[in-house]
Design a protein around this nucleic acid. Structure first.
Lengths: 258, 258
DNA sequence: GGGTCCGTCCCGCAATGCGGAACAGCGGTC
DNA sequence: GACCGCTGTTCCGCATTGCGGGACGGACCC
């Protein structure tokens, strides 16, 4: 991503700031100044000024001078506020717990950020307490929550999300060709629920359904997932019913009357 | 906070960006351009350029043009990464669960961000699933996690955190005078655990203990809390033992040998 | 239809940020 | 302890970016 701008140009400095922040991930937990230079292409002095400023406002952290950098706690605080302010997250608990209990499968609740499905809630039938594993944004084109959302977006969005070589491949079953995905999403839209047959993770079957806001716009989705040997073909119709019911309940809780 | 810079000046634009982001909170979930102008003091054109840029990179969201702004999902994603990358968070689960079970009280785990105690994990003995309520950064001077951390920081930090009128008052019991707090923290440090007697929330008693990283530096704390009528005076010694044991276990898990 | 208020956009100007180069600090080797 | 190599930090002349007053457009109200 070239500095994160999606529309026309904004503040150039902000674009540079985003490019620095995007160097970090769950795989690249901390980075030296040299590594940040290498990944962003910024000269040493420029990169140093950027990271020093980010550290001063708390968006990056550093244990001591000359040490490696990592994402700062201020981001966690702001991210917490995003979640706390989200109506969907506030309403979700009973629906997610009920779907987990009734289906016996893992449940994911994701919001669309314009290019990926961001999981904001996850529940496992066999785990207790808060989810231990965090999921970064899931690719929209090959996950059930992503496809449940994409099926109800304007057609030009799909064109915009496809890269020059189509969509990224994750497994042998990933649909990478834009035209094939468009047709697939047309089917998803017609039946009102999505199916991921190991397109993102091998051997995993997921069923998703779209969630609407009070204006009827699809902005989120919920899904159940399990290994194929567990969520067998004969069990799909019952799971579909449960997921759609949870999605409709959440949509109604958010003010959708449809 | 004047643009968030703690040291010498950094990028001016980043300071402005932070001032915009800091206008939002769990109380101010969405804001119009005019409201952002009023809170930041920026002229309309300046504020508009800032929020448009933030929206373009996903740090702010807007349902449609001319609509109100809110914090964007990209912040949640980055905040998620902060948490996922945190050794303390990854190691914490069994210690927090055990402390919750043995003490029968609410447990909080917080990290110091340089001025506040940021709660990253919370568990209640009577609640199931992930914590529903989110806590913004807790003031360090009047919470048990905050005081457990402050007691082991350099003395000049306390001077820096105090405002011109001392520390903010939350209840009748809040210690607001810097000298009084310094003496209080000296006692905390000597005995190795902290006590919050309704200093932040009336009628709530909390006991906290510091957590060290592999170098021995105190950067986090854990606490139990309950209403005074539940966590009575005779029950304090047993609770102290449990909290300190959990803190020491977590410190050891992080590589502290002391 | 007119008025008010808010948001968006333009462009001359001022402020900020850039980055090559020099310097400082740290770790490793002899 | 001295030296070397590498990385991080700082400086300052210059170029680019961001600023903000004002004009314009849109939505809402009377």
């Amino acid at each position: 991503m070239d500095g994160g701008f999606r529309g026309e140009d904004g503040l150039k400095s902000l674009g540079k700031v985003m490019r620095v922040l995007e160097c970090f991930s769950t795989r690249d937990r901390s980075l030296s100044l040299g590594e940040i230079c290498a990944r962003t292409g910024f000269p040493k002095a420029t990169a140093h000024r950027l990271v020093a400023s980010l550290r001063d406002v708390g968006l990056l952290d550093q244990d001591r001078e000359r040490d490696r950098y990592r994402l700062g706690l201020r981001l966690f605080e702001l991210g917490n506020t995003v979640l706390a302010n989200m109506d969907l997250h506030r309403e979700a608990r009973p629906f997610v717990e009920q779907l987990t209990r009734l289906s016996g499968h893992s449940v994911h609740l994701a919001v669309f950020d314009g290019r990926a499905a961001v999981v904001i809630h996850r529940a496992d039938p066999h785990a207790e307490g808060s989810p231990a594993a965090f999921i970064e944004a899931a690719p929209a084109h090959c996950t059930s929550v992503g496809k449940a959302i994409l099926a109800f977006q304007p057609p030009e969005l799909l064109a915009r999300l496809a890269g020059p070589a189509g969509f990224a491949r994750y497994t042998d079953r990933t649909i990478t060709h834009p035209a094939a995905l468009a047709a697939h999403l047309e089917e998803t839209r017609a039946r009102g629920w999505s199916l991921d047959e190991g397109e993102h993770q091998p051997g995993l079957r997921c069923i998703g359904a779209p969630i609407r806001d009070q204006t009827g716009r699809v902005f989120a989705a919920i899904s159940v997932s399990a290994p194929v040997r567990e969520l067998t073909q004969p069990r799909i119709p019952a799971a579909v019913k449960l997921v759609r019911h949870a999605a409709q309940g959440l949509s109604a809780a958010l003010g959708w009357r449809g």
